[in-house]
């Protein structure tokens, strides 16, 4: 895996770090300190590491689930993006995939699953129903799972193409890379 360019952004000529001990170490290194050591922001390195280890919790409720299974199987291969392994425990996952229609009866379950996930966590709403309720406007369907939990990436389509789901993962990775990260 090539290093993200952001990690190399601050690499360059020696600059005073403000830390006397570190400055002294740079001075004693014979001038090749920056060939041996990368300096970067904590946010960037946390985002870089987190975006390539997405453990997904598939909250699969409807027909989009078949499309999601096709997308996560080896033909389309979400493993390429580090989102390989579905975890069926919310405690062990950090990306919630809401795939399919959410009913009002199911809404408390979805909320509970989301609350059980440990920080940091992200949500992808897959399919028209999860995004907006789709063509349902009746007594039973929630018009979009963002009425219940915050959503990071919306994937349109009924059902979405597998490429769209892959694109959503890439979009989410961009978002994670550019986020502020708390060191938990």
């Amino acid at each position: 895996m090539a290093l993200d360019p952001r990690l190399l952004r601050l690499r360059g000529g020696p600059a005073p770090t403000g830390d006397p001990a570190l400055d002294a170490a740079i001075g004693e290194s014979g001038g090749d300190f920056h060939d041996k050591v990368y300096t970067t922001r904590l946010d960037a390195v946390l985002g870089w590491s987190r975006k390539f280890s997405l453990f997904q919790y598939p909250f699969v409720t409807a027909c989009c689930g078949m499309e999601y299974m096709a997308a996560s199987a080896n033909h389309y291969d979400t493993d390429r993006f580090g989102a390989a392994l579905p975890r069926f425990s919310p405690r062990q996952s950090d990306m919630l995939m809401v795939v399919g229609t959410i009913t009002h009866k199911q809404a408390p379950v979805l909320k509970r699953v989301y609350d059980q996930m440990c920080e940091p966590k992200w949500v992808v709403a897959v399919g028209a129903c999860a995004v907006s309720g789709g063509f349902y406007q009746n007594y039973t369907s929630v018009p979009g799972c963002d009425k219940i939990i915050p959503v990071d990436v919306y994937v349109p389509g009924c059902p979405p193409r597998p490429e769209t789901i892959l694109d959503a993962i890439v979009k989410l990775q961009e978002k994670i890379q550019n986020q502020k990260h708390e060191f938990i």
Binding site: H104, K105, A107, P108, K111, Q137, N138, Y139, T140, S141, V142, K147
Partner: peptide, 8 residues
């Protein structure tokens, strides 16, 4: 037809 009754 669209009178939903959300649980919260």
């Amino acid at each position: 037809k669209d009178a939903a009754q959300p649980l919260f």
